[in-house]
């Protein structure tokens, strides 16, 4: 019980919720439509509950270890043991990037994000950060929308420049 990892607990609960929702929702469908959700879902739920409880119940832990043909002590590689504060910072960058892209679009946010990341995270001198972010953005634009005609999201802000900044039609969720 002492070594309950927060990640294990969070993931376990998350997966339980996901699997449980689908299993319960499947009950409203006909026989053939719920057979696969139930056949797969019930054992999955059982395993998830067992993993959840095994942290508190050593005997179950031993049974699971035997069923796993090895120890339940996760063979984690040392890569994923960074401090949580550092992970929150990086995840924060990514979340901020995705939301900013959603709202303001690629054309504006890509150079800004690169500049900010180079400046803050990589501690690059401002001039170099600015130049490199502009160069990289230009290369991306030349390659994607310009040459290949791949559509680029302009963001949901009111239309400022057609197709470039603002005015995207948000698809219905």
């Amino acid at each position: 019980m002492k070594n309950v990892q927060p990640a294990v607990l969070i993931v376990n609960i998350l997966l339980l919720v996901l699997a449980g929702t689908i299993v319960i929702a499947s009950l409203q469908y006909g026989f053939r439509q719920r057979i696969v959700p139930l056949v797969i879902g019930i054992p999955t739920l059982a395993m998830l509950v067992a993993i959840l409880l095994s942290d508190f119940w050593p005997r179950l832990n031993r049974i699971l270890a035997m069923a796993s043909l090895g120890s339940l002590q996760d063979a984690l590689n040392e890569d994923v043991t960074a401090s949580w504060s550092r992970i929150f910072v990086i995840a924060g960058w990514l979340v901020a990037l995705s939301i900013a892209l959603f709202v303001f679009g690629f054309y504006v946010i890509v150079p800004l994000f690169l500049f900010a990341f180079f400046l803050v995270e990589a501690k690059t001198p401002a001039v170099i950060a600015l130049l490199s972010s502009l160069v990289i953005s230009t290369v991306l634009y030349v390659a994607f929308p310009y040459t290949l005609g791949i559509e680029i999201w302009p963001g949901i802000t009111p239309k400022v420049m057609h197709g470039v900044f603002g005015g995207g039609l948000i698809p219905v969720l």
Binding site: L15, A19, I22, P37, I40, A50, I51, S68, L69, S71
Partner: peptide, 24 residues
């Protein structure tokens, strides 16, 4: 998932369940 059969199977099961979402 040899080293971690139970967790591997559970993750695979959730993967299957999530793949059932949407138009069949």
């Amino acid at each position: 998932s040899r080293d971690n059969l139970v967790k591997g199977l559970a993750a695979g099961g959730v993967g299957i369940l999530l793949s059932l979402i949407g138009l069949s």
